[in-house]
């Protein structure tokens, strides 16, 4: 059974009253939802908490799932809205002091940073972008650089998404030039 078939089957069973069928949905999608939340907050506990909220919202809204879009797109859109609301309410994630200090520090420091630290700095820099550029970048890479799927999840035309990706990358270059 494919993932879409399994999802449809589980949704039908949950709506018929079989609560345990929702566990199949959680098991299939927990990695994706926790992974997406992690990209937004970079804290494991918060990410799992946010993903749990997203699953609960999906559970409450399950009757509204019509199957017009793929279940994955529907669920990811719910997760994205949940994470947005959470971050709006709680503010942007706090960066660790040493890594925050690394922003804008040039000279010989970057030579001491290994690739992993550099990657982490780029990820933190993405979180400092305005939401209109941050979300397209996060969703683009979350969907393995699939522009169409990222645009569907965000509810944006593909052209708009590409323009925001380009602008977001330009901002990243300005904010984190030493990572080149």
């Amino acid at each position: 059974m494919g993932t879409e078939d399994a999802d449809s089957d589980d949704v039908r069973r949950v709506l018929e009253g079989d609560l345990a069928a929702f566990e199949g949905i959680v098991r299939r999608w927990q990695g994706r939802l926790v992974g997406l939340a992690w990209r937004f907050c970079r804290d494991r506990t918060t990410a799992e908490d946010m993903a749990q909220d997203a699953f609960l919202k999906a559970f409450r809204s399950l009757a509204a799932f019509r199957g017009d879009a793929a279940f994955s797109t529907w669920l990811t859109a719910i997760a994205l809205n949940t994470y947005r609301s959470r971050l709006r309410a709680e503010g942007p994630p706090l960066l660790a002091l040493d890594e925050a200090q690394a922003f804008g520090v040039g000279g010989g420091l970057e030579q001491a940073l290994d690739g992993r630290q550099r990657d982490e700095r780029v990820r933190h820099a993405v979180l400092t972008l305005p939401a209109r550029y941050r979300e397209p970048i996060l969703m683009f890479y979350f969907h393995d650089m699939d522009v169409a799927e990222a645009a569907r999840t965000l509810g944006l035309p593909e052209g708009t998404l590409k323009a925001r990706l380009r602008r977001g990358r330009e901002l990243l270059k300005r904010r984190c030039p030493e990572s080149a």
Partner: peptide, 8 residues
């Protein structure tokens, strides 16, 4: 490189 493999 930084953003593709970023997950837990």
């Amino acid at each position: 490189r930084a953003l593709r493999s970023d997950t837990i």
